[in-house]
Amino acid sequence: MTTFRGLRAVAAAATLVLLGACAQPIADGEGVAGTPSSGPPTGGAGGLVLRVKHTGGFVGPDALAGRLPELSVYADGRVIFSGPTTAIYPGPALPNVLVRMLSPEQVTELTRQAVAAGVRPGTDFGQPGVADATTTEVTVVTGAGEQTASANALREARPDDPRLTAAQKQARTKLTGFLDRTDELTSGPGAQPYRPEILAAVVRPYVEPGDDLPGRPQAVQWPGPALPGEPLAEPQKLSCVTVTGEQRDAVLKAAKDAHATTPWVSGGNGWTVTLRPLLPDETGCADLKAAR
């Protein structure tokens, strides 16, 4: 059984055709970071121009640190996003991260639409009466610099929420419409597996399953640097390591036979590891430490 990200059907429009129908395929390969298109229109050579991510919410600290943005778009045309995942427990050890290409014109149009949808200073999305919901954070980089908009419980709030004014509801509707259109970037042919230059691992001590859960899964030897690595969130006993080159390849290979609850053995101890491919604008564990 397979479940997909929320790909929403949207009425055909000129901007949607521009952003969704003309995506350029990526060169064949087991996993690629994307072939740059000619000339970055914004954000510097290959720099981030648009990011959609969720922050907060009722999730565990390791899931919080290892959470990937929903969508990252770069000036060289790369679009990196989470692909389909199997609806089974436990899930795979490695998230399914995909990449596809846009043209410079598509990237420019996408940033223009983001600003028009309210991703700019001063947009008021209000605070609905919803507890423990995530906040949708959208960042766009244009010639005017970096601009961010944050809307709590963007899709969870009721249309008639009394805590929201008419203007706030309208602002939320515009932002939701823009995000529905960006979902089209993750559908259709042409996407390839994203192969990170750096792979991070969020680490915590392994805890044996309780009596009401299946028995201990088969352990896998950790082929990377010694665990647990550098502290990430000490109250939760979280730490982090990064791997590159041959060690990265060895971890990726071992992860094919592992799942999210697999105990990884390093230094004679068992560890639970959340693998997190770092994105092109990320450099190490400090980027995950900043997650919230």
Rank of each mutant, 00 (worst) to 15 (best):
Q168G: 02
T136S: 13
R158K: 13
A219N: 08
G245A: 05
L68A: 14
T283W: 04
L71C: 13
P69F: 11
S72G: 10
T111E: 14
P84E: 10
G118E: 01
G118D: 02
A151H: 09
G145W: 02
V10G: 02
G229A: 01
V220F: 01
Y194R: 02
S82H: 06
F125C: 06
S72L: 11
V52M: 11
P209D: 03
L18I: 07
T173C: 00
T176C: 01
A21K: 04
K53N: 09
I88A: 14
G44E: 14
W264I: 04
T261G: 04
C285Y: 11
Y194H: 08
Q113A: 15
G224S: 08
D180H: 14
S72I: 04
D281A: 14
P40M: 01
P104V: 02
S72M: 12
D124S: 11
T135Y: 07
G122V: 04
G66T: 10
P231M: 08
G34F: 11
V251K: 07
P277F: 10
E208F: 01
A117R: 07
G46L: 12
G56R: 09
G31V: 08
T86M: 08
D287C: 13
V273Q: 07
T35G: 14
P235Q: 07
A149N: 05
L288P: 12
P235F: 05
T182N: 11
V140A: 13
K289S: 15
N152K: 09
R51I: 12
Q221K: 06
L185F: 11
R100C: 05
W271H: 12
A93M: 11
E137N: 05
R78C: 03
D76H: 11
V115A: 03
M101Q: 15
V207T: 15
S239F: 11
A201N: 01
K256N: 05
I198C: 00
V220Y: 00
R158M: 06
K174A: 14
V202K: 02
S82G: 14
A291L: 04
F58Q: 12
V202C: 04
T135K: 03
K53E: 15
A255Y: 10
T262P: 02
Q106D: 07
L179P: 06
Q170E: 14
P263L: 09
P196N: 10
R158N: 08
R276P: 01
V79Q: 08
A133Y: 09
L102S: 01
M1G: 13
T142E: 05
T182D: 09
V140Y: 07
N269D: 14
P90L: 10
P225G: 09
E30W: 13
E137Q: 15
V202L: 02
L50K: 10
A9G: 06
T165I: 07
Q127N: 10
V273N: 11
V243Q: 14
A63K: 12
P263C: 07
M1W: 08
V119E: 05
L16N: 11
K237F: 02
R78Y: 08
T244M: 04
R100I: 04
A23M: 13
S37A: 15
V119T: 08
V17K: 07
G83I: 05
P209H: 03
A286C: 03
P225W: 09
P225Y: 02
T85D: 12
T134S: 11
P159H: 05
L94K: 05
P69I: 07
L213C: 10
G20A: 15
P209T: 03
G77T: 07
V49Y: 10
L179M: 15
L48D: 08
Q221V: 12
G66P: 10
